[in-house]
Design a protein around this nucleic acid. Structure first.
Lengths: 267, 267
DNA sequence: TTGCTCCTCACGTCACGTGAGGTGGC
DNA sequence: TTGCTCCTCACGTCACGTGAGGTGGC
């Protein structure tokens, strides 16, 4: 087979830059069919053109090289399709996020929201069922949805009626490192046994500054800003996780959602 | 004003990580209202909360920090809105690109296209009007559209009738470094004077392997792969830019587009 | 033979994240 | 006083891009 491409020809045929091709060789993603031991010259086979094109297409979709490696390594079509589909779903999710962000941005730039009032409230000690995990910022929303669904299922299985709305506790590490403990919980009237991920949880009484957020979760940061400012202006911040109560979390229209944000304070 | 946030409190109030806040300070994007000269402790003002939130929103949209700096520095609303709008348009364009890529990917993974035939043709010497520029890969498509529109306008103004379809020459640097000379051109029957960016251009005769691509530009890489393989298998590659002739480039349905790819060969 | 192509370092980019090791503040 | 918060390096990440300086191949 004399029909080998030089790296330059292969670049023109595949629309991958020479630097990218050398890098793919280095990380073992696309090894040339032949490398001259003396000169180090890379030679690519005709059969590598379609492989290179698949790589380029996936890179256009911003798929990481490691994942592309998985796609290429998948021998059976089912496994490969699964990886591709998973990535496309992630793209789709990101897209929806982006659109929500754009919408929220308008509000942020156009008008200053009037801002809710903060009230002081002592959250009483209480029983709950909970799921606790170390959660990364990016996956928090999905994690919370899964956890609350699992808790709801556990309550139903145990034939227990909830004593309050869904909620979650967010550790300071979660905010400051974007990676830390989160507890999803559902209040219950009496102590209850856990099973699997689901564990009983006992709240301590805690004094908080509470602000009620009306609207979608994407604008929850506005309420955090207002509440944080309120606490800081009065220098009453205390230790402990921030609690969110999802008073209404299943409305058809996101504008109807109601969330309480509870920031621990002294006194 | 004792109402200053510590970096941790500010992180919780704005949902920016502590590391991100330190970095924004370092690059001068968000400088704390006060920094203790002795300890280096950062203190943030309440008024910085909305600024931080705007930054976070734009980062969610993947806007680079430098551009965010521009947005924040824009004193008048018009200038700021322009930057924001520009970014949103870029996001939109990227989105459409992504969707096209997904569609093209299906074809690449599912079925091997039958592949057109390559034919040898000697492109004769000819006259043309042209615009030449050093072009980056990312912006090539937009650049070409603009250049060809400008050339069409110049022909109309000079009352000259074209002698062939739109075309472009792509230097090897353009392919191999994703940054190099590109010439957009329109053939004309007789030599013509230039003006501004528009310059006369004389083609030398050139023997090429030519493959005709039917369909959208997003799948042009398939034809490049097939044509490059054809040339390499026969070891007939020659120096010189690759030429594309846009035989049909204004169809309503992208499937009806026709593009000739001309790869220089010996003899 | 010329000059064009290809090679390998070494370093830069962007927006942080990840520790290590140490100090300040309530 | 304790321990929690904050600090500053220094280095890592990801997928290449940007030269510098040198050699191979037609």
């Amino acid at each position: 087979m004399a029909s080998l491409f030089t790296i330059g020809e292969f670049s023109r045929a595949t629309h991958l830059s020479v630097k990218a091709l050398r890098y793919y060789d280095e990380v073992g993603l696309l090894t040339p069919a032949d490398t001259d031991p003396g000169s180090g010259y890379r030679r690519y086979a005709v059969a590598q053109v379609p492989v290179a094109q698949v790589i380029r297409r996936f890179r256009d979709l911003e798929m990481p090289l490691d994942r592309i490696k998985d796609v290429l390594a998948a021998t059976d079509r089912t496994a490969r399709d699964r990886v591709v589909l998973e990535h496309l779903e992630q793209m789709q999710a990101k897209l929806e996020e982006t659109q929500a962000t754009v919408a929220a941005l308008q509000g942020l730039l156009e008008a200053r929201s009037p801002g809710a009032q903060a009230i002081h409230r002592t959250l009483p000690a209480a029983h709950a069922v909970s799921i606790r995990d170390r959660v990364d910022w990016q996956e928090a929303e999905r994690w919370l949805g899964d956890a609350l669904a699992e808790l709801a299922g556990a309550l139903k299985a145990a034939d227990v009626v909830r004593a309050g709305p869904n909620g979650a506790l967010y550790s300071t590490e979660f905010f400051e490192y974007h990676d830390g403990d989160v507890v999803a919980f559902v209040p219950v009237p009496d102590p209850i046994a856990g099973s699997g991920r689901v564990e009983p949880f006992e709240f301590q009484a805690c004094t908080c500054a509470v602000m009620v957020h009306h609207g979608p979760f994407t604008t929850l940061d506005m309420t955090y800003g207002a509440l944080g400012s309120y606490v800081t202006e009065r220098a009453i911040g205390a230790l402990g996780p921030i609690r969110e109560n999802y008073v209404i979390d299943n409305a058809d229209d996101p504008a109807d959602l109601v969330t309480e944000v509870c920031w621990p304070v002294t006194e």
